[in-house]
Design a protein around this nucleic acid. Structure first.
Length: 479
DNA sequence: CGTCCTTTGAAGAAC
DNA sequence: GTTCTTCAAAGGACG
């Protein structure tokens, strides 16, 4: 029987080795980089002035034990649990208990314990205690108290009045889980009363979107609660039996399908294919970078006044590379736990299950990229570079090798040049955005090197600096 | 409305 | 064992 985080955090062995190796690879890759001339070390030294600032509020706070004190967290966890439990209608609770008793194995636990593990991420300082609680809860039904409560506790200093999604610099936040569950519980009870115990999908909101995470507060990434419920406890619409939308399980069809559930009607006869297509999709667990993006996206949007995801992702990608190993390690660890739990909760699931469910890009495009000799993959292959760990030449980026395009396709590039011969192809760093702008302004004109609030056309990151003396976006020099 | 863009990482398929 | 492909999130842009 799988133990979720059981035994005081001893349940992490699954896949641990692999993950550590994977992270080692990351590190090895970093070691190779300076050879290509990219000043990764310098950047690492400097990044605190740019990249880290926006993340810096919580930088390092994610380390185990550096969060709120364990005792305090547990105390608040218990308080939160009380609040949470107080909101559960008796009828619902009874129903849940009944459901529990009919479940088997690890899922025989209370549904609440399903949320316990939420806090088992490093960084909130409660991983050990909560882990033990949840582990025991899963196995014996005991120990769910601390675990459950901890699940709704976020970092210290958070307010119950802030709205989810708010930028997290210095802004206190509502504990997202608590808010989410509280609001859902209200709806659920009403719904169940009306429908005599028949659950009806109430919302399809992705829980994960509720969590605006504080900087470095990786431990607060709580969308992963989605992994803590078993398919057997799901309705086919992607809902947990509590009625809470499940982020990892999404229905394929929309209103029409839900209407069938609404009315308790049997859907019209369907082909096997249709049935297959309507099976709820269990999503892939998020990898480290995806977790990082989820946490930082809102911040980048706020800082850059950008909304386009592609641009945001570019920025996030660079910031990701600018993170220290320690900072990245937090996300790798989170991702490892995500995969671990996902594996335990959906033992038969394979990433292949979702193949083809996303509409594929046009074949032509794929073929083009596959046959393009200047494509990063082809380029790496040509130069005998490892696809996973090596970059395309000096570019330290997975884009076209300029050298190759210039007909210098022999051997590994050593210096990046553009097609016109100028050295523009070195990997832009976030610091480059400062170089684009700084000369025109004196330091006292800048509120901070990372105070990005305007968009600068020439900035390679679509970022710009906020000037103390200029209104929004005004006076930024063209370069 | 559906797909693309854009990023990194994981996993599976195809060599 | 290596390489290639797909998908995970996000939301504006575009056909």
């Amino acid at each position: 029987m799988p133990q979720l985080g059981g035994g005081g955090g001893s349940g992490d062995d699954l896949g641990a080795t692999d993950e550590m190796l994977a992270f080692k690879d990351e590190g090895e890759q970093e070691e190779k980089i300076p050879q290509g001339g990219f000043p990764e070390r310098d950047l690492a030294d400097l990044k605190s002035s740019l990249v880290n600032e926006s993340e810096g509020a919580g930088s390092g706070s994610g380390q185990a034990g550096s969060g709120p004190g364990q005792t305090e967290v547990l105390r608040r966890a218990q308080n939160s649990q009380r609040l949470y439990q107080d909101k559960i209608p008796d009828a619902l609770e009874e129903g849940l208990k009944a459901q529990d008793s009919s479940s088997v194995g690890m899922y025989k636990e209370s549904v609440y314990s399903g949320y316990n593990l939420l806090v088992h991420y490093p960084g909130n300082g409660v991983s050990a205690g909560a882990g033990a609680g949840a582990g025991a809860g899963a196995g014996t039904g005991a120990g769910a108290g601390a675990g459950t409560g901890a699940g709704v506790v976020t970092g210290a200093g958070q307010s119950l009045h802030a709205k989810p999604g708010q930028p997290s610099h210095g802004v206190t936040q509502l504990t997202p889980l608590y808010e989410h569950f509280s609001s859902h519980q209200t709806h659920i009870s009403a719904d169940i009363n009306q429908k005599q115990g028949v659950h009806r999908p109430l919302q399809t909101t992705d829980i994960s979107s509720f969590y605006s995470l504080s900087p470095g507060g990786v431990g607060q990434i709580s969308h992963t609660m989605g992994w803590f419920t078993h398919p057997s406890l799901m309705l086919s619409s992607g809902m947990h039996t509590t009625g809470i939308p499940h982020p990892a399980i999404v229905p394929h069809s929309g209103k029409q399908e839900l209407q069938h559930y609404d009315r308790g009607l049997k859907p019209p006869s369907e082909t096997k294919q249709e049935k297959e297509a309507k099976k709820p999709t269990i999503k892939k667990p998020l990898n480290a970078f995806m977790l990082y993006m989820k946490e930082m996206r809102a911040k980048v949007i706020a800082e850059c006044t950008l909304k386009e995801s592609a641009a945001i992702n570019q920025i996030l990608g660079r910031r990701w590379h600018a993170l220290s190993r320690e900072e990245q390690a937090k996300y790798y660890e989170l991702a490892r736990k995500e995969r671990q739990l996902h594996m335990q909760l959906y033992p038969g699931w394979s990433a292949r299950d979702n193949y083809g469910k996303k509409k594929r890009r046009s074949r032509e495009k794929h073929q083009e990229s596959n046959t393009d000799p200047g494509s990063p993959k082809k380029c790496r292959a040509r130069f005998g570079l490892n696809q996973q760990t090596d970059w395309c030449g000096p570019c330290r980026r997975k884009k076209k090798c300029i050298r190759y395009l210039q007909g210098e396709g022999e051997g590994r590039c050593t210096s990046p040049v553009s097609s016109d011969g100028s050295a523009i192809d070195s990997p832009p760093s976030p610091l480059d955005s400062l170089q684009y702008i700084r000369p025109a302004f004196t330091p006292d004109q800048l509120t901070s090197p990372t105070d990005f609030t305007h968009r600068q056309p020439n900035c390679p990151f679509s970022l710009s600096l906020h000037l103390k003396s200029t209104p929004h976006g005004a006076g930024l020099p063209a370069r």
